[in-house]
């Protein structure tokens, strides 16, 4: 069991993760190939004015008001920090990079361990904030199902077990096993659950954004 989890399962998890995302990417274009409607881009009525750097920054700040920043600035900050660290903290963790070097002969830059530890704690605090929101805020609770809690657990579990493992709390070998297992589960579930927004965020953000922005009504996907 232990040998499977820390051996073949890691390879399987990465293969499922990559092929799964590839599959979803292809599916996205396959299912939307038949266009229900379409018309050429609307002509631009206003000639785009020449923008100075200051104006671009100002317009960016103004457009922030049309986003979550206006309705819930705390959530905006928490979710941004959470997502950046979700990718960044494990990628630049010393232990991971040493193992990477052992296996493949190369590794990434790694942060000091105390810093990584702190970043992990921040991820956990953000996770606790999401959990708290789902439990305590009525309008969020109303649309929360068990599935959402499970997805949150899948995302946070590798960080929780990693945090314990670094401190060597509880039975170390067991915690490490759970850490590797939870990481594998996360990789495998990303393409097939809500966690798929790792891929779909970019598709939605740029295709829909493009459709309503630069291309003025024309669909490119």
């Amino acid at each position: 069991m232990v040998d499977f989890v820390q051996g073949p399962l890691i390879s399987i998890a990465f293969i499922v993760f990559i092929l799964g995302l590839l599959f979803q990417w292809i599916q996205f274009f396959r299912l939307t190939r038949k266009k229900e409607w379409g018309h050429p881009p609307l002509p631009r009525e206003i000639k785009p004015e020449k923008k100075t750097a200051g104006k671009i920054v100002a317009s960016c700040l103004t457009s922030l008001k049309g986003t979550l920043w206006k309705t819930d600035p705390v959530l905006t900050v928490v979710t941004t920090v959470f997502h950046v660290l979700l990718i960044g903290a494990p990628l630049f963790l010393l232990g991971h990079n040493i193992l990477l070097y052992q296996s493949w002969g190369w590794s990434l830059f790694s942060l000091p361990e105390a810093l990584s530890d702190g970043l992990t704690l921040i991820v956990l605090v953000c996770g606790a904030y999401f959990l708290g929101r789902r439990l305590l805020v009525a309008r969020v609770r109303a649309i929360t199902t068990l599935y959402d809690y499970v997805v949150l657990l899948i995302a946070v579990a590798p960080f929780l077990t990693g945090f314990f493992a670094y401190r060597q709390w509880f039975h170390y070998e067991t915690v490490m096993m759970l850490h590797i297992l939870s990481g594998n589960i996360m990789l495998i579930t990303i393409p097939f659950t809500k966690l798929g927004h790792m891929l779909f965020f970019f598709l939605y953000r740029f295709f829909l954004g493009g459709e309503y922005g630069f291309l003025r009504g024309a669909r490119t996907w």
């Binding site: 820390q6 232990g95 040493i98 493992a165 670094y166 170390y172 070998e173 490490m176």
Partner: peptide, 16 residues
């Protein structure tokens, strides 16, 4: 390395 003798497994992870 995976070990057949699981009774007294040597440390496998950093903290071991």
């Amino acid at each position: 390395k995976p070990l057949k003798d699981r009774e007294k497994a040597p440390p496998r992870y950093c903290g071991g």
